[in-house]
């Protein structure tokens, strides 16, 4: 069985090579782009910035998925968080000093994400509405709302775009890293050591047992959805202040929240491991930007990430099965 587990990884590698071969860059181009990323400190630092929204989404999703709460609302929450930050910095009319502006942008993004997450949680807990679909619909609703703000009330200049946030409000990579580490550590402790974490595990593994033996399932869904939304919301602030800076009209949403979903599963639902996996994904993104100059579609990165996650999950699954008597 060891061999067939390794086969899963090999199949993944073959898949990546095939996909790369479908693009103008080819496998060699892909690997050389990756090599470039991993040998240039400035690109490695940039990767931390891009990891911001992905990791922030993933750490919260990891907890939610542990509870069996299969939301995919992180995408909309990231976007809403970014909108909230943009409002604080650019449109609230508050002339805050930079540190305070950044802090309140983070806070408001957190609250915005939390509330949006809670909508999904409330629908699930009280009405039993399937969270995967409801959160997905909310993603598109937020996207439409973002486009409305960008094209309407927030529009400046000839193009459909918002103001740009001032350089004083940009986040350097150590700040992003600190934010992510703080969230991941808190959530890791929450999962492993706290009463809430224990309850979340039980709810995910056996919902019926959890409810029968005195765990407040409804309240737990609310907690988890709020927590998940909050971290993704922070991710939106990190996206805006880390690298995005200006919001433009978009036909599809940025996708960092969706990548968070892939990351959470790849990290086997551990918040701390999600951090590492996000960083890895983020280096792929940077490589993807390099490859764009070879006219490789950016979403090729998404395919490669998907293949990696699938291979890892298959590897773990086959390994687990072979350990059983």
């Amino acid at each position: 069985m060891k061999a067939s587990a390794a086969l899963a990884l090999l199949a993944g590698l073959v898949g990546i090579v095939v996909v790369a071969a479908m693009t103008p860059a080819g496998p060699a181009g892909l690997f050389s782009a990756l090599a470039t990323v991993y040998t240039r400190p400035d690109l490695l630092a940039t990767a931390v910035l891009y990891a911001g929204p992905i990791a922030a989404s993933a750490v919260g999703l990891a907890v939610a998925y542990r509870a069996g709460f299969l939301t995919i609302g992180s995408e909309g929450q990231v976007l809403l968080g970014a909108l909230a930050s943009m409002w604080v910095i650019g449109y609230s009319g508050l002339r805050l000093p930079p540190v305070l502006a950044v802090a309140s942008a983070l806070l408001l993004a957190l609250v915005a994400g939390l509330l949006l997450g809670l909508v999904v949680g409330v629908l699930r807990a009280w009405l039993g509405v399937n969270e995967t679909l409801s959160s997905l619909m909310l993603n598109y609703i937020v996207l439409a709302y973002a486009n409305y703000l960008i094209a309407g009330p927030w529009r400046v200049g000839a193009f459909t775009e918002t103001k740009s946030i001032p350089p004083s409000c940009s986040l350097a990579w150590p700040v992003v890293l600190a934010c992510l580490l703080a969230m991941a550590v808190v959530l890791e402790v929450l999962v492993r050591r706290t009463r809430l974490g224990l309850a979340v595990e039980a709810l995910g593994a056996a919902p019926r047992a959890a409810e029968t033996y005195s765990l407040p399932s409804r309240r737990l869904y609310l907690y988890v959805s709020a927590l998940q939304g909050a971290t993704a919301g922070v991710g939106g602030a990190l996206m805006l202040m880390g690298f995005q800076r200006v919001l433009t009209a978009m036909s599809v949403s940025p996708g960092y929240g969706y990548m968070g979903i892939l990351v959470a599963w790849m990290a086997l639902l551990s918040p701390l491991a999600s951090l590492l996996a996000s960083y890895f994904f983020s280096t792929l993104i940077v490589a993807g930007y390099i490859l764009q100059s070879y006219r490789v579609p950016f979403n090729t990165v998404l395919v490669i990430q998907s293949i990696i996650v699938l291979a890892v999950l298959a590897y773990v699954m086959i390994g687990r099965r072979s350990r059983r008597p």
Binding site: A205, R208, A210
Partner: peptide, 28 residues
């Protein structure tokens, strides 16, 4: 299994999850 006990988890976990919420406290 699945209703009385949580499958895939340890014996300790299966004792703890049924008590944790009644016992209170933040940490386990």
């Amino acid at each position: 299994l699945g209703w009385g006990l949580v499958p895939g988890r340890s014996i300790v976990f299966n004792i703890a999850f049924a008590h944790a919420w009644l016992d209170g406290g933040f940490m386990v």
